[in-house]
């Protein structure tokens, strides 16, 4: 069954149409990388999937439930969709552990004690067990982003969305974040990743999608898209970035 099903998605900002009819199915356990020039709508598309952006037209179904339905319980559906942002967006007034425990405790999914145990586990998983009581400001960018991933995993989501997770990082920290994402891919997490890291996309993606000017221009497995792009725009883009 598809984890994410997008049909005829349109999105306007005022009069500007940034997404012009997108269809996409993401299978369970599939890792999809969205690539494309800036302004192509890939981040907007990703943010539509958990309704951080309201869509103008079309439908998005996540795990069998329409998230774009006016009557949908959006908060409930979002619990199942983790998101990681370019700017980390950790809560600066809370410790690393409190950041991770926030959602499970506030949404009454776990008691404080259970959440604390879970936070410890998740931090071990991203290799930051010793940062449990630190504040985000005392962490490097790469460490902050790994905490952000742990936080997004705290609700045990089925789907993870990554919005340019390494774009705000110093080059030497990109690897540690990508390694965590690779680990998740290996464990079978369904993921949609907007990225500029072509090498990473080639390695981790089951499918690469090239977007430009609000539409999906070309998609396929990474070997085909990177090795033998069919569309002129894809070729131009790949020539510029590779």
């Amino acid at each position: 069954m598809e984890k994410v099903k997008v049909r005829n998605l349109h999105k306007y900002f005022e009069k500007l149409e940034v997404l012009r009819g997108i269809d996409l199915d993401v299978a369970e356990g599939e890792v999809v990388c969205l690539i494309g020039p800036s302004g192509s709508g890939k981040s907007t598309f990703l943010r539509c999937i958990n309704q951080l952006e309201e869509i103008t037209d079309g439908e998005i179904v996540v795990d069998g439930a329409s998230i774009t339905d006016k009557k949908a319980n959006i908060n409930k559906l979002r619990e199942n969709i983790g998101m990681v942002f370019q700017q980390f967006n950790l809560f600066p007034h809370l410790t690393v552990a409190q950041n991770i425990m926030m959602a499970p405790v506030q949404l009454k999914k776990m008691t404080k004690d259970e959440a604390a145990v879970r936070a410890k586990e998740l931090l071990e998983m991203v290799d930051l067990g010793e940062k449990y009581d630190e504040y985000p400001a005392n962490l490097s960018g790469g460490q902050q982003q790994r905490v952000a991933i742990a936080r997004a995993l705290a609700m045990n989501p089925d789907i993870m969305l990554f919005d340019e997770p390494t774009s705000a990082l110093d080059p030497e920290m990109v690897g540690e974040v990508l390694n965590v994402i690779k680990k998740l891919a290996k464990d079978g997490m369904t993921m949609v990743i907007v990225t500029h890291e072509m090498g990473f996309a080639r390695e981790v993606a089951d499918r690469v999608i090239f977007m430009d000017e609000g539409v999906i221009v070309e998609q396929g497995n990474p070997m085909d898209v990177f090795g033998d792009p069919q569309n002129e725009r894809t070729k131009n883009f790949l020539n510029m970035v590779l």
Binding site: K76, Q87, N89, L90, F91, A103, L107
Partner: peptide, 13 residues
């Protein structure tokens, strides 16, 4: 920063 609200909402709050 409005990313703070977005991050909290994305968690289901």
């Amino acid at each position: 920063n409005k990313g703070q609200m977005e991050a909290a909402r994305s968690l289901g709050l």
